[in-house]
Design a protein around this nucleic acid. Structure first.
Length: 298
DNA sequence: CTTCGTTCCTGTACGC
DNA sequence: TGCGTACAGGAACGAA
């Protein structure tokens, strides 16, 4: 499942291949992958063909490429990519056979290079591609469809104090808050569970009962785990995540909680558990991450 | 306003 | 063997 580290690996892999390139032809093989494209703004293919990629940016799990047209048409637009659950962006030779679950093919050409395919492959179709307008947001221009998400903890515009304050104002469980992209972006199920294991916090611990110091400590663990996962090329837990060359990351071997139910906790030796929460699995140590005794409900 | 449940989608892993 | 079903989950959406 691509989360911030995996999306950043993809961004970094795409940057040298697409920055300054021009989209020569675009093929949409499955229109369901364009569900976040607003057709009233124009045809997806028409908006892209002939456009130059100025740069490639990321916030949280969103990727986008600001575009420029020689005619000035569509300037201020960006190609926005979200990988969802199973999305991949692959760089392929133009004559390579179609990948399974290929949804969109963009043929790019560098100023002095041969054409290269940028392929959007997505088994479960929770991901999407769209051409969207850029609007003023946190730290500069962001796609309109990503303007509601908060900065991610690895970017300079993330405000630690504001996060701690906002987190403690919430009246919900800590994991639900970590997964709320409007509060802090980039965290998904894997890194939420890993961060909470490191912070020794139960996933349903009430946010309004956290001390500011504990909230700050948790944020430190979030940064550590995201940074380490990025350094190891991301987590390829179910083989859905690979980099632009189709290679898996190594962080799966460093997971302490996610997917390790039934195994011994690396810290205390207790048997790790998995419980269903928010329609997804939560992995935790029942000894290290106890739910504090609930204050009597009146 | 905030909080939370539902829905989208397909491949895989099961039980019978 | 084959069929049906549960499960994996990011984010938009609507309800309360």
């Amino acid at each position: 499942m691509p989360e911030l580290p995996e999306v950043e690996v993809v961004r970094a892999g795409l940057a040298p291949a697409v920055t300054g390139s021009v989209f020569r032809s675009v093929q949409v093989l499955d229109t369901r992958s364009l569900k976040r494209h607003d057709a009233r703004r124009g045809d997806f293919v028409g908006l892209l063909e002939g456009a130059t990629v100025l740069e490639i940016k990321r916030r949280g799990k969103f990727l986008w490429m600001p575009l420029a047209h020689a005619e000035g048409l569509g300037n201020g637009d960006a190609l926005v990519v979200h990988l969802g659950m199973s999305g991949q962006v692959l760089l392929r030779e133009t004559d390579a056979p179609d990948d399974r679950h290929l949804r969109v093919r963009l043929v790019t050409e560098m100023p002095d290079g041969k054409p290269v395919d940028v392929r959007f492959v997505d088994q479960r179709i929770f991901g999407s591609m769209a051409v969207d307008r850029l609007v003023e947001g946190i730290g500069g221009l962001v796609p309109a469809q990503a303007a509601h998400i908060a900065a991610d903890p690895l970017e300079a515009d993330f405000d630690d104090d504001a996060f701690v304050t906002a987190l403690r104002k919430r009246r919900t469980g800590i994991k639900r808050a970590l997964l709320d992209q409007g509060l802090i972006s980039g965290i998904g199920n894997i890194y939420a569970d890993e961060s909470l294991w490191r912070a020794r916090l139960h996933y349903d611990r009430p946010t309004d009962a956290l001390t500011a110091a504990k909230a700050r400590e948790l944020l430190g663990h979030v940064r550590d785990v995201l940074g380490q996962a990025l350094a190891e090329g991301g987590t390829s837990f179910d083989a859905q995540y690979v980099n632009v060359n189709g290679q898996a990351g190594y962080f799966e071997h460093s997971l302490n909680a996610y997917g390790r139910q039934g195994e011994a906790c690396a810290r205390c030796g207790a048997t790790l558990r998995r419980e269903s929460f928010m329609n997804r699995g939560s992995h935790f140590c029942p000894i290290c991450q106890r739910m504090p005794r609930t204050r009597s409900a009146k």
